[in-house]
Amino acid sequence: TETYTFDSEDQAEEFAQRAQKKGYTVEKRKENGKFKVRVE
């Protein structure tokens, strides 16, 4: 499980979609103005 942090929602969304296409489970959340994407 890895967590990635992005400054913009667009970046987080793009990353999450790519990860989902590769078959990963993706969980997105906003925390302290940053966008976190957890991938497993």
Rank of each mutant, 00 (worst) to 15 (best):
S8E: 08
K34A: 07
G33R: 03
E2R: 15
D10I: 11
T3M: 08
A12G: 02
E13F: 06
V37N: 01
F15Q: 01
F6E: 00
Q20R: 14
Q20D: 04
F6R: 00
E31K: 04
Q20V: 13
K30T: 11
Q17M: 12
A12M: 09
A12R: 01
K34V: 11
V26L: 03
D10H: 09
V39T: 04
V39G: 01
E2I: 15
E9L: 08
Q20F: 10
E14N: 07
V39C: 04
E40Y: 15
K21A: 13
N32E: 09
D7M: 06
D7F: 06
Y4L: 04
E27Q: 11
K36R: 09
F6M: 01
V37P: 00
F6N: 00
R29V: 15
E40R: 13
A19Q: 11
G23L: 02
R38M: 13
Q17R: 13
Q17H: 09
F6Y: 02
E14Q: 10
R18E: 12
A16M: 13
T25M: 11
F6D: 00
K30E: 13
K30R: 11
N32V: 03
R18Q: 12
V37K: 00
V37D: 00
A16D: 01
R38Q: 09
N32T: 03
V26W: 03
T3Q: 06
E27C: 14
K34F: 10
E13T: 08
N32S: 06
G23F: 03
A12W: 04
K21T: 08
F35H: 04
E40A: 13
D7E: 10
Y4F: 12
E9D: 08
K28A: 07
T25I: 13
T25R: 12
K30G: 06
T1H: 12
E9K: 05
Q17Y: 09
E14S: 09
E31T: 05
E40K: 13
Q11T: 07
T25K: 14
E27F: 12
A19N: 05
E31F: 06
G23C: 05
T5D: 06
T3W: 15
Q20G: 06
D7K: 04
G33C: 06
E27Y: 13
Q11Y: 05
A19H: 08
V26Q: 02
T5R: 03
T3N: 05
E2A: 14
F6P: 00
E14K: 09
A16N: 02
K28F: 14
T25H: 13
T25P: 04
V26R: 01
F15N: 00
V39D: 01
D10G: 08
V39W: 04
E27H: 13
E13L: 07
T5S: 09
D10T: 10
A12Y: 02
Q17A: 12
Y24F: 12
V26K: 02
R18F: 10
D10M: 10
Q20M: 14
Y24D: 03
E2K: 15
K22L: 15
E31S: 05
K21M: 12
T5G: 03
F35Q: 01
V37Q: 00
E14W: 09
K36I: 15
V26P: 03
G23V: 01
R18N: 11
R29C: 14
D7W: 06
E27M: 10
R38T: 14
Y4S: 02
K28I: 15
A16S: 07
G33V: 02
S8W: 07
N32P: 02
A12Q: 04
F35Y: 12
D7Q: 05
Y24Q: 05
E13S: 07
Y24K: 05
G23E: 02
K36W: 11
V39F: 04
F15M: 03
G33T: 04
D10W: 12
V39N: 01
E13Y: 06
K22E: 13
N32G: 12
K21N: 12
Q20L: 14
E40N: 13
V37E: 00
G23R: 02
G23W: 03
K22Q: 14
E2F: 15
E27L: 10
E14R: 11
G23T: 01
T1N: 10
T3H: 06
V39Y: 03
Y4R: 05
K34Y: 10
T1W: 15
E9A: 08
T3R: 03
R18W: 15
T1M: 11
N32R: 05
S8Q: 08
A16I: 11
K36T: 14
F15V: 02
R29E: 09
F6Q: 00
R29T: 14
R18M: 13
E13I: 08
Y24W: 09
F6K: 00
A16F: 10
T1S: 13
K22I: 08
T3G: 04
R38W: 09
Y24L: 11
A19P: 00
V26C: 08
K21R: 11
F35W: 15
S8K: 07
Y4T: 02
D10Y: 09
F6H: 00
Y4P: 01
D10S: 10
V26T: 09
Q20A: 13
A12I: 01
D7T: 07
Q11I: 08
E9P: 05
V39R: 02
V39P: 01
T25A: 10
R38G: 03
D10P: 06
Y4I: 04
A19E: 06
T1K: 08
S8I: 06
T25V: 12
V39I: 13
E13W: 07
T3S: 06
D7H: 06
E27T: 14
G33A: 03
G33S: 04
V39H: 02
R38S: 11
V37Y: 02
R38N: 06
G33D: 07
K28Q: 11
K21Y: 08
F6G: 00
E31H: 06
R29K: 11
